[in-house]
Structures are given as structure tokens and as C-alpha cells.
Computed example of a mutant assay.
Amino acid sequence: MKPYQQIEINECGEPLVPIPPEYFAFETPHPYQKLGAPYHNSKTNSPYYLRQGVVDSLVAAQTQLQQNHQNLQILIFDAYRPVEVQQFMVDYTFNQIAVAQGCEFPVSEDKRQVIIEHVYQFWAVPSLDRATPPPHSTGAALDVTLVDKNQRQIDMGSAIDEISERSYPDYYAAGDEPQKQEYHRRRQILKNAMNAAGFQQHPHEWWHFCQGDQMWAWLTNHNNSGTQVIARYGRY
């Protein structure tokens, strides 16, 4: 169990709604759908849904971004992710790492344990327990990046879903080379816009932001010595 999963959930019952296309760019075709992830079994048949309150805050983040950077726009890489899709992506990532390491299939139990622990550093466990939902399965977490006025993705110094320390939000903070400093500046632009709208950022993923789920509550409480909050969004 990860620390944030100990946070209490008081489900508010807010619905999932589509992310309005007029405000954002989208990763199309969706990267996980291209791999065959089973969205067809979900309530939405699409990853581009979030809870209503999260969508409202996301629009506020885009407004905040363009006040300071008129040529930039938030791109939605991923949002709502049913547990079945979470399981699919965990399995896919496991297999990718196993192949890259030259493992024979079936993977031996000791090697399997090492790989799965590595996978779970970046991917949430696809739990069906209502008390420990994967963040994306609540409709309160999303993966985003930036595009320019020509809809070209901004290079942030690592790809979304890259399993390495380069994915840590502040990985380039101490870099003394101009390119590394630029990567950090770009990540800060995204973070500042999302934070201003009430989102929290995943400690190990520059692209992952959340609002109202267990991770959001845990991060909020960790950064605030005052009133402690609980999660308002559980598994949808």
C-alpha cells in the first residue's frame, strides 16, 4: 500500500463528464487505445472524461496558462482510466521491461518480482478494492503536457510514461546546461498553471496531476500544517 492510499474517501457522487474539446489539445489517436486497452467495457468508452469539478478546474488551468503564455495550450494525454485499462497497461509495461531485459517467458518468479516492483514505482496497482482505487480510475487524475500554437508538443525532457528518474518533476532543476534549464522551465510553466487551479502534481511524474482523489488529499495534507482534507472522489 502506498502512503496516499491510507487517506479516507468520502465519495461525493459527482458525475464523469467529457473534457470540452474547445479548450484543449488531445493526444489522438489515444495511446492506450492504440495498444488495444479495453475502454469498450467502461462506462464512457473514452479516456477523455473527468469528474465535473475537475473539468472546471482544468479549464481554469488553461485560462491561467494563456494569461502568461498565449502561445501555449494544455494537451490531454490521458484522463479517466477504468481498472481494466490500468491492469492492461501494467501488464503491457511489465512485458516491455521484461523483453528489454532479455527475459525468457514465462518470467521466473524472482525476476518477476523485481520487474513488478519497478513497474509499480510509476503505475498504480490495479486494485478493485473501493478503499484503494488507482488514481486515474476515480476520474480525478490526468496526464497532460503542453503544445505550441501549431499543436506541436513541447519537449519536456522525457516522454510521458517514461520509467526513469528523468520523469521526476524536478529532475532538471539543478542542471547547469541551458537545455536542462529550459526543460525545467517548461515543466514549471505547466506545474504553475495546474497548481494555480488547485491541482497537485505526482512526486515522480511531471505530467500527472490530480484534484480531489486520495493522492491529492495526501499531497495537500503533506504540504499544509493546517486543516487536513480527505478524498472526495473514489473509484467510478
Results as ranks from 00 to 15, higher is better:
residue 204 H to Y: 12
residue 192 N to A: 04
residue 154 I to L: 06
residue 165 E to H: 04
residue 142 L to Y: 00
residue 130 R to Y: 08
residue 164 S to E: 08
residue 45 N to D: 14
residue 32 Y to Q: 15
residue 33 Q to E: 09
residue 88 F to K: 02
residue 37 A to F: 01
residue 76 I to D: 03
residue 77 F to I: 12
residue 147 V to W: 02
residue 94 F to V: 07
residue 77 F to H: 13
residue 75 L to Y: 00
residue 61 A to V: 02
residue 42 S to Q: 09
residue 209 F to H: 12
residue 69 H to P: 03
residue 229 V to Q: 08
residue 143 D to C: 11
residue 224 N to S: 05
residue 161 D to W: 12
residue 118 H to C: 03
residue 172 Y to Q: 08
residue 54 V to N: 15
residue 145 T to K: 06
residue 73 Q to F: 00
residue 221 N to F: 01
residue 11 E to C: 03
residue 69 H to C: 08
residue 24 F to L: 10
residue 226 G to M: 02
residue 1 M to S: 12
residue 158 S to A: 14
residue 170 D to A: 11
residue 144 V to A: 00
residue 37 A to E: 03
residue 85 V to E: 05
residue 179 Q to I: 15
residue 217 A to F: 01
residue 232 R to P: 01
residue 35 L to S: 04
residue 60 A to G: 09
residue 57 S to Y: 07
residue 110 D to M: 06
residue 127 S to E: 11
residue 178 P to W: 03
residue 112 R to I: 00
residue 123 W to H: 15
residue 235 R to M: 13
residue 226 G to R: 08
residue 220 T to H: 13
residue 90 V to C: 07
residue 157 G to Q: 06
residue 10 N to Y: 08
residue 102 G to L: 10
residue 116 I to Y: 01
residue 10 N to D: 14
residue 76 I to K: 01
residue 70 Q to P: 02
residue 9 I to W: 04
residue 228 Q to C: 01
residue 22 E to A: 14
residue 151 Q to F: 07
residue 27 E to S: 10
residue 229 V to C: 03
residue 79 A to E: 10
residue 104 E to W: 08
residue 20 P to K: 05
